[in-house]
Amino acid sequence: MKIDSVILHRLRMELVSPFVTSYGAYTDRETIIVQAIDSDGHVGWGECVAFATPWYTEETVQGAWHMLQQFIIPPLLQQEIKHPHELTQLWSGIKRNAMAKAAVEMAVWDAYAKRQNKPLYQLIGGTRHEIKVGVAIGLQPTIDHYYELIDHYLEQGYERIKVKIKPGQDLSLVAALRERYPQLPLMADANSAYTLEQTEELKQLDPYNLMMIEQPLAADDMIDHAQLQQNLQTPICLDESILHAEDVRKAIQLGSCKVVNVKLGRVGGWNEALRIHQLCRYHHVPLWCGGMLETGIGRAHNMALATLPGFTIPGDISASSRYWQRDIITPEVTVDQGSVRLPDQPGIGYEVDEQYAESLTLDKLVMR
């Protein structure tokens, strides 16, 4: 296949409600949508999940736009590609910038699946056409706000709840939630809010039977995570620490975690995500798919990822209405009895509402 053109769309979408982490509150989501068109007219879609500010990783929307325009897309255009796996080598001279690379790689994989007339999830080896899903809840001002949200999501059928924690909003929160929901599959996400010096604090969460504590320490604290895991009964899940399969190998060897979160954008796209999946399956390390406040395009790719057999924990793949009054795909993603069913159409299986997306567009660039 040859990619004749790539169109970048920078959008801003208002969130239904603010999403609050230990780093701050977000009321809207700026994102880059990538549209790749091959020589036979197949259109693939991808999404760059970098944020407007570098709170999650060093990548930002503005920086990704520059990298896409100047370095990542030019070598792809008019390049003969037999399989999307070849993109890894094509971009081997470009260090890091995983989210920018992933956005284009997603679009190429989508176009490739459409060329093969197969759903993307089947093409990558997915074994389920329906996946169990969970939902993430940002920091809330009162415990009653948590109760209200969790009751609402449980009524919708979500099978697993993740709450954000930080020092001062951790033990009392988890204790209150566990008292009200004694059997609820519950996990906590710290977004690197702790240090090894707070081990005793984190150990106090052990009695509450959490599924995991996600990324308690800094992204580059692989050794400290290993030391922390030795002192915790609760499994540690690594998120920001895992940028590629080599990080997974080191984490397993060191004992830094017992669970791995995979986000396509964070690891650089499908090729690296598939390597991580293979490695974790070999070592019997459970996986789950994280979310990055994606539009329906990124969400559809996440859904395909979560069909792989190693993804045994419900991921953060909520309905479109969880974040958006109106999504940019049709039909929108819906949750039924705690599950999402994947469409049978080729590629990601959803149509992009290009007219609506255009109304949200801040900037657009066509590259040929």
Rank of each mutant, 00 (worst) to 15 (best):
E47V: 01
L15N: 08
F71W: 13
G255D: 06
G126W: 11
I72Q: 03
Y56E: 12
A113F: 11
H66D: 09
E159H: 02
H42T: 12
T127E: 02
A52G: 04
L293A: 13
D247I: 08
L287K: 02
Q62A: 14
L76R: 04
V333K: 14
W91H: 02
Y181Q: 06
H283N: 11
P167K: 01
I32R: 06
A245K: 06
W55E: 15
T334N: 12
Q215H: 01
I297C: 02
I37Q: 05
R368S: 12
R368Y: 11
I328V: 13
V61D: 14
D144S: 13
K250C: 05
H277W: 00
I73E: 06
E351D: 08
R341Q: 10
S92V: 12
G46C: 08
I73V: 14
G296D: 12
D336F: 12
K2W: 05
S22M: 06
S39H: 06
R299L: 11
D239H: 02
E30M: 10
E240S: 05
Q70T: 08
S172V: 13
N271C: 03
A100S: 09
E200W: 05
R281T: 02
A102G: 05
K132M: 05
T27M: 15
V262H: 10
L154G: 12
Y323Q: 09
Y147T: 14
P18Q: 06
T234R: 03
A50H: 07
H42K: 14
R299T: 11
Q337D: 13
G298R: 00
K203E: 06
M292H: 09
S192W: 12
K258G: 15
V104Q: 07
H83Q: 15
L279H: 01
A300L: 01
D221N: 13
A175L: 11
Q233C: 13
P75E: 00
E159L: 05
D144L: 07
R128F: 08
H129P: 04
L76Y: 15
G298I: 01
K258D: 04
G265I: 09
P331C: 11
K118Q: 10
A300S: 09
Q89P: 00
Y158E: 02
Q70G: 04
G44C: 09
G63I: 06
G265K: 02
G138K: 01
S39A: 05
D40V: 05
P54L: 08
A52R: 10
T295E: 07
D247H: 11
V135T: 15
G296E: 10
D110R: 15
L217F: 01
A52W: 04
D170R: 14
E197M: 15
F71V: 07
E200G: 02
L139I: 10
P74F: 00
M13A: 09
Q198C: 05
L205Y: 02
P84K: 06
S39I: 08
T53F: 14
Y112R: 11
L293R: 09
